[in-house]
Design a protein around this nucleic acid. Structure first.
Length: 653
RNA sequence: GCCGAUGUAGCUCAGUUGGUCAGAGCAGCUGAUUUGUAAUCAGCUGGUCGGGGGUUCGAAUCCCUCUAUCGGCUCCA
């Protein structure tokens, strides 16, 4: 007998060789029906794999990521089997479960391509194979045997993977007519998969290397119930309605013009006002934190970026230098503000007493992004960073870094961004050609970030190889409507540029010293931040930010004059409002302005004109009753004050 | 940049296999109506069907190419 410890710390005894499924059955019939995989001492196992010693287990269902993972991973094997049946000779790459669903990378050979018409065929075949109720069987074999097995099938991608594995034994999973190199875990059988959607096709380089062959990636998602698939598709539909590209157009916030150029956003009046308000908000916060605004030009001598290292790193993949006609001087559109700010630092000798110097600029930068990369406002070729560079003494670094974290968290809080990931991006020590600077500087920088984040109690994930070429970063990642992750706020420690630009300050010892730099942008870029803000709010911006706070709706043209009076009254309170003077019925005006996501609709007719009142309607909530002009102005001003309370009453940094 | 898809009026979309196929709704304009809480009615305007080539007696429809957009890959200072 062996002892099995359950998550509630209760211990049950079973025969050696008991499986996760046996245990589930012994607990409850329903659990046995729902369980998908099992954690055995922290490792996820198949439900059918025998347990032979005392362990702690946890049973995973569809409600657990681990359960879904096993489900989707098994689905990808099922899809592979379907592909093998439909397209004989297809070679398989990898086929993992992903955050929502799964994919399989396949090589169909030279003259075959999949098109979207094939997707439903694949679905149908998958469901057919699922109903065959094949079991997923695990098998450990020697590396040599595994190589022979896949060589015989000419599975070149699999043999490449196996030959790189260092484990003595290789694990295979087999179900139906399909056998795959795989660590598992898997569902007990294909019959668990009741509902399948093959969602899309894409090209994907083998092993993510653009120099290698591009395989066809088939994406899919599957569910244990048809209803769950329908719900998933509904959620996707809803998410599409929040897409900032759609809302940006509808709400007239920004546009693109292929005549101006792809990836070059154009801010329309309403979007520009919104952005301006965000900028002013941040300026106010930064002022409290001792930042000084500067303004630098949009281009800089090529030499400046040779000094900074940007030219060597990105020169080939940037907009190419612009040259002067007479002298042939070369200028680059600035891809970063830091070199300019380094020059500002060098404007005059700095004393240790002057530090930290915090130079802030809403700096517009231009970067050549590959055409396939462009995406609405989140990935563009020209954008404005809410940039600042802090030049400080080494002994001030941690304190300064923490203050920047405070600013980022404060902004996220003010704008209700709750769902973010703080990611520490470190360099890949095995790929030093990607980075500039000494190991010592890198170690110091990385330590500073890790310590500062820990000191703030920030929950972070660490990702190797994601650092900027000059230093490590603390990035704040936020998801968009359809779950894509974008980097917004970023804080970077940099010992390298001060060296390259030979920045100095005179210490208390009357000797020159090297300052440390912090690059930081709490929004990241105005474009990307506004994009994510649109998707998070689905265009219903907070009152203090929204382009138009209220719209006055006269019942008929007879009350237009009174409407103008209301408008003037509100204008005196800096309340942003407009009148819908169209010759339409009130129901129509309400509908149209609700759709424009204007927070307050103020209806004025005979009664209101007589009594100097307005009938107030809140966006999405309906009639709020009648108020006097004064009452409403006071109410709205108070609402805005509450929203921005944080802005004006921050604790002194 | 690579793979796949898409591109019809300002917007959302119809247009079977190439032959009155250039359409609808909304928006816009004009007029009527003067309206009380999510679409008043009528009339009108608007498109070399993304651009350019080609096949054909004939192309929105088929082919090539360019361009932009969408979903991914790679990249992201």
């Amino acid at each position: 007998m062996i002892k099995i410890t359950l998550p509630d710390n209760s211990v049950r005894e079973y025969e050696s060789g008991v499986t996760g499924m046996d245990i589930a059955k012994s607990i409850s019939h329903n659990l046995a029906k729902e369980v998908l995989s099992v954690s055995v001492n922290g490792e996820t196992w198949d439900l059918t794999r025998p347990i032979k010693e005392d362990v702690s287990i946890k049973l995973y269902t569809w409600d657990d990521d681990e359960g879904k993972h096993a489900f989707w991973h098994s689905s990808s094997h099922l899809m592979a089997e379907a592909l093998q049946e439909l397209y004989p000779g297809v070679k398989f790459g990898i086929g993992p479960a992903i955050e929502s669903g799964f994919y399989y990378d396949i090589d169909l050979g030279e003259d075959r391509v999949l098109t979207e018409a094939d997707l439903s065929k694949i679905e149908a075949k998958m469901l057919e194979l699922a109903r065959a109720k094949s079991t997923y069987a695990r098998e450990d074999i020697s590396k040599e045997k595994a190589l022979n097995f896949f060589n015989a099938k000419n599975e070149v991608y699999k043999t490449e993977l196996i030959s790189e594995l260092t484990d003595g034994t290789i694990t295979l999973y087999k179900h139906g007519n399909f056998t795959d190199l795989c660590k598992g875990p898997h569902l007990p059988g294909t019959e668990y998969i009741k509902s399948v959607k093959v969602t899309s096709l894409a090209g994907a380089y083998w092993r993510g290397d653009e120099k290698r062959k591009q395989l066809t990636r088939v994406y899919g998602i599957s569910f244990p119930k048809q209803k769950l698939l329908e719900e998933y598709l509904m959620v996707l539909e809803e998410a599409k309605k929040r897409d900032h590209r759609k809302l940006g157009k509808e709400l007239e916030l920004f546009m693109f013009s292929s005549k101006v150029g792809m990836g070059l956003p154009i801010w329309l009046p309403k979007g520009a006002k919104l952005r301006e308000r965000l900028e002013n908000f941040l300026k106010k916060v930064q002022m409290k934190y001792g930042y000084e605004q500067v303004i630098s030009p949009h281009i800089g001598q090529k030499e400046l970026y040779v000094t900074s290292g940007h030219f060597e790193k990105y020169g080939k993949d940037s907009f190419q230098p612009i040259t002067t006609p007479q002298e042939g001087e070369e200028f680059l559109l600035k891809p970063m503000n830091c070199p300019h700010h380094c020059e500002i630092y060098k404007f005059k000798p700095r004393s240790y007493r002057d530090l930290p110097i915090r130079l802030a600029e809403f700096g517009t930068v231009y970067r050549y992004e590959q055409s396939g990369e462009l995406h609405g406002l989140t990935r563009v070729r020209g954008f404005t960073q809410d940039d600042a560079h802090i030049f400080c003494r080494p002994d001030q670094l941690k304190e300064e870094f923490i203050k920047v974290i405070d600013i980022v968290l404060y902004i996220f809080k003010t704008l209700s961004f709750k769902d973010y990931v703080a990611q520490i991006s470190l360099r890949d020590p095995n790929n030093t050609t990607k980075y500039i600077g000494s190991d010592e500087n890198w170690e110091k920088s990385e330590r500073a970030i890790i310590e500062a984040a820990a000191e703030k109690g920030l929950k972070t994930t660490q990702v190797i190889g994601e650092a900027a070429f000059y230093g490590p970063k603390l990035d704040f990642m936020v998801k968009d409507a359809i779950g894509r992750k974008w980097q917004l706020g970023t804080i970077q420690v940099d010992y390298n540029l001060p060296e390259r630009f030979n920045l100095e300050y005179i210490g208390s010892d009357d000797k020159p010293h090297r300052p440390v730099m912090i690059h930081r942008a709490p929004f990241g870029s105005m474009e990307r931040f506004v994009a994510v803000l649109i998707e998070h709010t689905s265009g219903k911006f907070p009152l203090w930010l929204t382009p138009e706070q209220c719209v006055i709706l006269p019942i008929s043209e007879k009350f237009n004059d009174y409407a103008k009076k209301v408008l003037n009254f509100l204008n005196n309170y800096d309340i942003r409002s407009l009148i819908d003077e169209r010759n339409e019925k009130i129901g129509r005006k309400i509908r149209d302005n609700e759709l424009k996501r204007i927070p307050y609709l103020l209806i004025v007719g005979e009664k209101e004109a007589e009594n100097n009142t307005i009938a107030v309607r809140k966006q999405g909530e309906g009639d709020k009753g009648v108020m006097t002009l004064q009452e409403f102005a006071t109410f709205l001003t108070e609402e805005v004050r509450k929203e921005t309370e944080l802005l004006t009453n921050t604790e002194e940094p």
